[in-house]
Simulated assay, not measured.
Amino acid sequence: MREDRLALTHVGEHQSDYLNAVTPPVFLNSLHIFEDMDGYLNNGKTGAYVYGRVANPTVHILEEKVAALEQGCTAVAFASGMAATSAAILAVCKAGSHIICMRDVYGPVKGILNGYFIPKMNMTVSYWDGRDLGELEGLICDETDMILLESPATFVFCAVDIRGVAKIAKEHGIRTYIDNTYCTPIYQKPLTMGIDIVMHTMSKYIGGHSDIIGGILAVKDEELGNVLKGNIRAWFGGIIGPMEAWLAIRGLRTLNLRVERHQQTAMAVAEFLESHPKVTRVFYSGLASHPQAELIGTQQTGHTGLLSFIVKGTAEQAKNLVDSLKVFEIGCSWGGFESLALCPLYAASGEELDFLGLGEEGRSMIRIHCGLEGADVLIEDLKQAFERI
């Protein structure tokens, strides 16, 4: 879309404010000074910058861009994706709140719910498979304040009916949150479908070069945005650093071009894997064989570079296949220029595998990120690795 391209390249930038430099500078200062006491005392009314823990000019440019991309009114940048997620929960919930969390969300999100919010803040959490809206409604109680989503979800890339969940939540006065890192704002805009808070881990596609850690939240509700920025982030001190914000701005310049190439490569690789005799199943939201292809077509306009597949064999054979790859490197993140492979559930407990609905075959799952090396290069690498098992 034209608006997206303009947001990536121009929104939030005012060259006349910094000597007409085509690229905005990195404001590394911790402090801003004032000409007189009246200016200092009125900074809340004028929106002037005061202290780096609260706001920073470079960070603000990044926030303006992401807010525009997500079609929200406000975006708030944090030092990591988990800092952003934690801030969203703190902004919405209180001691004793009930949260409904999609079963397949990012593992550390479940970790902080189970390890901190439940024991320390007396919250309760119900886990939901993300598919049955009737089951979702059945989990709602008087204390339910928030629903946490991710779509497509980690590992098996199942999709959530975003509009359906948002409708149910609004009927009950419940806030909704979604991790939109996989699709990026280029291929999915949850705020336009009724979601309250959208989160991106910026170490992935927004950064795009595997050189930053950061997270960002986007909202349509100005009051909620003020709570996230003026209260939660300022009080807890979770703002992203200006250098990381500048690198994220750099990453945004080419986001639409990169995700298109990631998608092209991943589609070719997924189709290759789907036809391979040593593969049992392929999980990729772009495949026509995806069981939720119809739903995905109503809320995503594209797909990116992450997918999983299950090797027809033992967990040890899957591990050996990963070790045999020469172009794919072994690493836990994704979304950068490089291709990565991992057996994410190789050492998982039986309880975790059952929780994810995969069973023992989940140990033979390989997750890959298709980088920018080209589909022909990656397919050849997979071919030679398959020949070794």
Rank of each mutant, 00 (worst) to 15 (best):
Y40Q: 05
F355D: 02
E373N: 02
I379K: 09
L287I: 11
L345M: 12
L139F: 10
Y346I: 04
A315W: 08
H209R: 13
L6R: 12
V165R: 05
Y18F: 15
E373L: 06
H60T: 15
T85P: 00
I239E: 04
G374M: 02
I118A: 11
G374D: 05
R53P: 04
F309E: 01
A75H: 01
P277H: 03
Q300E: 14
G47R: 10
M267V: 15
T85R: 00
I296M: 01
L6S: 06
A77I: 00
A385I: 07
A55N: 15
T85F: 15
G350R: 08
A347Y: 13
G107S: 09
N180F: 06
E222M: 10
L247N: 02
I147G: 03
I296E: 00
H276S: 09
L356T: 00
R253D: 13
G96F: 09
N43I: 06
L19I: 00
G44P: 08
K319W: 05
L113Q: 05
T144P: 05
L345N: 07
Q300H: 15
M82Q: 12
T254Q: 13
E64K: 14
G115W: 13
L382N: 05
H262C: 12
N42K: 15
T46K: 12
N20W: 15
L287G: 10
Y106A: 10
I212R: 00
E143Y: 11
A348D: 12
F355A: 07
I379L: 13
L340W: 09
G72R: 03
G111H: 02
N320L: 10
S324F: 08
V269S: 09
H276W: 11
I206Q: 09
R281C: 13
D132H: 04
R103Q: 06
V76A: 06
N320Y: 00
E171G: 14
G237P: 09
A293Y: 14
P291H: 11
T154D: 12
G111M: 05
Y116Q: 04
A245W: 06
K167H: 08
S308L: 06
R250M: 13
K220Y: 02
L378D: 00
T9L: 14
I118W: 05
G107Q: 09
N43V: 10
A153N: 14
S203E: 08
S126A: 10
E64R: 13
N29T: 15
P242N: 08
I118R: 12
I168F: 07
A268R: 12
A268Y: 02
T74N: 10
L136A: 02
G357F: 07
